[in-house]
């Protein structure tokens, strides 16, 4: 802290350095803000979860509906994330390595889920597959259930988490250009060998990073999933939805216990993310942006 308070002589101060007072004020503001809006709520989640002791906490987690919500959340993520990885790789490959018409439109479309409200992201599926939709008679005739079932949850989650992998890969792939691929092809490698041995390793850490963000969002998504879920206990409730139901039923320990699981998952994600950024920051697209 000594350097923070010591006032450097005018002649030695760099042009972009502020005075000690300004620096203290800035740091304090940031710390107070973080404590109020991030750390305190997080601590509260755990305090509330353990309010009636560890026994009640574990009891709330072992409850069948809670277990079912965890299973469902994991199932949704396991389906949605790999599909988005395939899509993200294909889209960024196309955008970064080829020139074609409508490229900018495609980039904007990929960003669309970020810019629209999650409620809309859910509602589109209701409009598409709901009982008043054009597809409804056909779906009913073939006994296919999309809304208020796993397919609907997966679709809504995929829609919302769709940009994470692509957004992470596109800038990096664009920056790397195509010479590595050209070198590989000139050495006689096939397109698939080139993708597998050259392109993919070049973006591997960015891909891991994208998958991580995508997974975190898939697990935590509330809005879009809420619209298509139907809130059938033990059947179509994911973890975030389950927290809401428990809370509305004044089952605070249950709600916060389940919420603590989500919070823990978030902390683990944050940890892995920090490690990735620290170790492979130069190979991540976001590392270049900051």
């Amino acid at each position: 802290m000594a350097s923070l308070f010591s006032r450097a002589p005018i002649g030695q101060r760099s042009a972009v350095n502020e005075g000690a007072l300004t620096r203290i004020a800035l740091v304090l503001t940031a710390v107070v803000f973080l404590a109020l809006f991030l750390i305190m709520p997080l601590v509260l989640v755990f305090v509330e979860a353990f309010r009636q002791g560890a026994g009640a906490y574990l009891e709330a987690l072992k409850e069948p509906d809670a277990l079912s919500a965890m299973r469902l959340t994991v199932t949704v993520a396991i389906i949605a994330v790999p599909l988005n990885v395939v899509f993200g790789l294909a889209a960024s490959w196309a955008i970064a390595k080829f020139e074609f018409r409508g490229k900018n439109l495609l980039i904007s479309l990929i960003d669309l889920p970020f810019s629209i409200s999650p409620v809309i992201s859910g509602l589109v599926w209701v409009l598409l597959f709901g009982s008043h939709s054009v597809l409804s008679p056909w779906l009913q005739a073939h006994d296919i259930q999309i809304l208020f079932a796993l397919p609907g949850l997966v679709l809504a989650t995929m829609f919302v988490t769709f940009p994470f992998v692509a957004r992470e890969l596109i800038p990096l792939m664009q920056e790397q250009g195509t010479t590595d691929e050209e070198a590989s092809l000139s050495l006689g490698a096939s397109g698939l060998q080139t993708f597998w041995h050259v392109t993919l390793p070049n973006v591997r850490w960015a891909l891991v990073y994208g998958v991580l963000l995508c997974t975190a969002r898939a697990i935590g998504e509330f809005g879009a999933v809420s619209v298509v879920s139907g809130h059938i206990r033990g059947k179509t409730n994911t973890l975030p939805l389950h927290v809401e139901i428990l809370y509305n039923e004044y089952s605070f320990v249950g709600a916060f216990a389940v919420a603590s699981v989500l919070a823990l998952l978030a902390l683990v994600t944050l940890g892995i993310k920090a490690v990735l950024e620290w170790r492979y920051g130069n190979q991540l697209a976001s590392g270049h942006r900051h």
Binding site: T179, A183, S184, L185, L187, G188, A189, S190, P201, R204
Partner: peptide, 30 residues
């Protein structure tokens, strides 16, 4: 790939995640 030419790029285009040995043997391995 079919022309069997040796091309050296201005930026070298070495595969950064491979050792020097793997880089040199790449054309034979594939």
């Amino acid at each position: 790939g079919q022309r069997r030419i040796g091309f050296a790029f201005q930026s070298y285009a070495l595969f950064r995640h491979m050792t020097v040995l793997s880089n040199v043997s790449f054309g034979l391995k594939v």
